[in-house]
Amino acid sequence: MTRAVVIGLSAVVVAIRDGEAVALTVRHGGAGDPAGLPFGPFDPDSDRTFELALRAYVTEQTRFDLGYVEQLYTFGDAGRDAPLADLGGGAGASRVISVGYLALAPAAVDTHFAGSEWRPWSRIFPWEDWRAGRPDALDAVDAALRAWAGADAQKLARARLLFALDGAPWNEERVLDRYELLYEAGLVAEAARDRSEAAPVRSDALTVALGEPMISDHRRILATALGRLRGKLKYRPVVFELMPDAFTLSALQRTVEAIAGVPLHKQNFRRALERAELVQGLGRLDADTGGRPAELFRFRREILGARPVGGLSLPLLRE
């Protein structure tokens, strides 16, 4: 018997709140159930385009209107499609192909809609935030990965490379690869769920270090979005889609750091920004900085149609 194919649409909506990168999530079940991304099925009879259908779902489920949107990836692995995401129409007996989208918002506006929440990435991927140095979560993750790898040199080498163990360099863009390794190792909660196994008993420290699980394949989709966005910072000026019309250079740097998860060298960041000619001073000061008033700038959006425009250099702050 041929299984029906259902096309699902999922949205990773990203903003900055209180200096943290946050994603818009929804909770369709009870208070104790995992959260998920805004999602819904594509109806070829009534939906004109994927993007229009997605925008309608996000607004319906969160009361939030999307701005900048781009298609992210298509997810279709059997067994990881929608074990807990009810797409309706008998989708539980169907093969679900999920089309993910990345959306960027200049403000994490309160939706005032039951079940929706702006959730910090650091709660979902605690090992990804290196702004204050090596995250504490990696201690527990390190030990768990070594126990999984055992005497297998290849497994241990992958863990070292991806999670910067034993002094290996950190590559902030490999978010999905790190999540996939934890899934393969059976460490994240979604692995046991998808294999219909009982959740293993974990220490409190490891449970916190492995982050909050999500329904269906939504944490995998979120990891893909974070890696894509971190890479795109360097070759497209997408960070300005997360900024208000007027901003300080310090606020811009904090936004880049929140997305990239690494600290940047202030002077070198500003030099690179000046060379790129992406911003222009507005000739007025922001008095709400909590200290010395700082100059306000705007993104020179008009240059997008005038010449090829790159992204931002990420000059790391070395200890």
Rank of each mutant, 00 (worst) to 15 (best):
R123V: 13
V58K: 03
R55V: 10
A114W: 08
A53N: 03
Y73C: 09
V96D: 01
E60R: 14
T59R: 14
V58N: 02
G67L: 11
D81P: 00
H112R: 13
G100V: 01
L84H: 12
T59H: 14
L87P: 06
Y68W: 15
Y73R: 11
T49Q: 07
L104S: 01
A82K: 03
F50S: 05
T62E: 08
F50D: 15
G79S: 06
R95S: 12
A78V: 13
Y68D: 09
T49F: 10
Q61A: 07
V99T: 09
V99A: 08
G67S: 15
L52C: 15
G115V: 03
L54I: 07
I97P: 00
G100K: 00
G92V: 13
Y57R: 14
Y101N: 04
E117K: 06
P120S: 04
L54M: 10
S116W: 06
W121A: 07
A114G: 11
V109L: 10
V69Y: 07
Q61P: 07
P120H: 04
G79K: 10
L66N: 01
T111Y: 00
G88A: 08
G76V: 06
P106N: 10
Q61Y: 04
S94L: 03
L104Q: 01
A56M: 11
P106K: 11
S98V: 09
E70G: 04
V69M: 09
G92A: 15
A78P: 05
L104K: 00
L54Y: 09
I97E: 12
R123A: 09
F50M: 07
E60Y: 13
R80W: 13
V58H: 06
F113V: 12
Y68T: 14
A82T: 08
R55K: 15
W118V: 01
A53D: 06
S98L: 11
A114S: 12
R80N: 13
D77E: 15
W118Y: 03
A91R: 06
A93F: 15
T49P: 04
A103D: 00
G76I: 07
D77C: 12
D110I: 00
A91Y: 03
A78R: 15
F64L: 11
R55P: 13
R123Q: 13
T74F: 05
R95Q: 09
P106H: 09
L66I: 08
R63V: 12
L102Y: 01
G100F: 03
A103Q: 04
F64N: 01
L104F: 02
A105M: 15
L54N: 04
G79Q: 08
A103Y: 00
Y57H: 15
S98Q: 12
L84G: 14
S98Y: 01
F64T: 05
R119I: 05
D65P: 01
A91E: 12
E70D: 03
A114T: 10
D77F: 13
G92H: 15
Y101L: 04
L66F: 04
L66C: 02
A114P: 07
V99N: 05
E70A: 05
G115C: 04
T49G: 04
A103R: 02
T111L: 06
Y68K: 12
A114H: 13
L87S: 05
L52R: 15
T59W: 12
T59D: 12
A56L: 12
R80G: 14
I97C: 07
V96P: 00
